[in-house]
Computed example of a mutant assay.
Amino acid sequence: MSYLPDAQLSDTLPRLVQTRLLQTFEASNFPNIGRPDDQLSVDVTLATELRAFEIDAGNGNVATVTVNAKLVDERRGAIFASQIFTASTPATLDPTATAIAALDKSLQNVMNQILQWTAKTA
Results as ranks from 00 to 15, higher is better:
31 P>D: 09
94 D>N: 12
104 D>G: 06
21 L>G: 04
39 Q>K: 15
25 F>I: 03
55 I>R: 02
94 D>H: 03
92 T>S: 15
13 L>K: 14
121 T>Y: 11
63 A>G: 12
2 S>W: 09
86 T>E: 12
101 A>L: 10
60 G>P: 00
119 A>F: 00
116 Q>G: 08
79 I>E: 14
74 E>L: 00
121 T>H: 00
44 V>R: 15
17 V>K: 02
78 A>G: 00
19 T>W: 04
117 W>V: 00
63 A>N: 06
67 V>I: 15
72 V>D: 06
99 A>F: 08
40 L>A: 13
14 P>Q: 10
115 L>E: 02
44 V>C: 12
44 V>Q: 11
37 D>F: 11
88 S>W: 09
18 Q>C: 06
18 Q>S: 15
35 R>D: 04
77 G>S: 02
69 A>H: 13
98 T>F: 12
69 A>E: 13
35 R>F: 06
57 A>S: 14
108 Q>H: 11
87 A>G: 14
109 N>D: 13
53 F>N: 09
41 S>T: 10
50 L>P: 06
46 L>V: 05
16 L>G: 11
88 S>T: 10
97 A>K: 11
99 A>P: 13
19 T>E: 13
76 R>H: 07
70 K>Y: 06
111 M>F: 05
25 F>L: 12
102 A>W: 07
24 T>V: 03
9 L>D: 05
69 A>T: 09
116 Q>V: 08
75 R>I: 05
73 D>S: 09
77 G>E: 09
58 G>A: 05
60 G>R: 03
44 V>T: 12
50 L>D: 03
12 T>V: 06
24 T>N: 04
31 P>S: 10
9 L>I: 00
95 P>W: 10
3 Y>V: 03
41 S>L: 11
26 E>Q: 14
5 P>K: 09
59 N>I: 01
120 K>I: 00
96 T>L: 08
89 T>M: 02
69 A>G: 14
115 L>K: 11
122 A>D: 06
85 F>N: 12
72 V>H: 05
108 Q>R: 12
91 A>V: 03
80 F>N: 13
114 I>T: 03
54 E>C: 04
5 P>M: 08
97 A>N: 14
76 R>E: 13
31 P>G: 12
96 T>D: 15
120 K>M: 05
75 R>S: 14
60 G>A: 00
62 V>S: 12
24 T>M: 11
111 M>C: 14
19 T>S: 15
27 A>Y: 01
70 K>N: 10
74 E>I: 02
118 T>Q: 01
51 R>K: 15
117 W>A: 07
69 A>C: 10
21 L>S: 04
28 S>C: 12
23 Q>H: 07
104 D>K: 09
103 L>N: 05
110 V>K: 10
90 P>Y: 09
112 N>C: 00
18 Q>Y: 00
5 P>Y: 07
27 A>H: 06
39 Q>I: 03
67 V>P: 04
90 P>C: 06
87 A>H: 09
108 Q>V: 01
78 A>R: 14
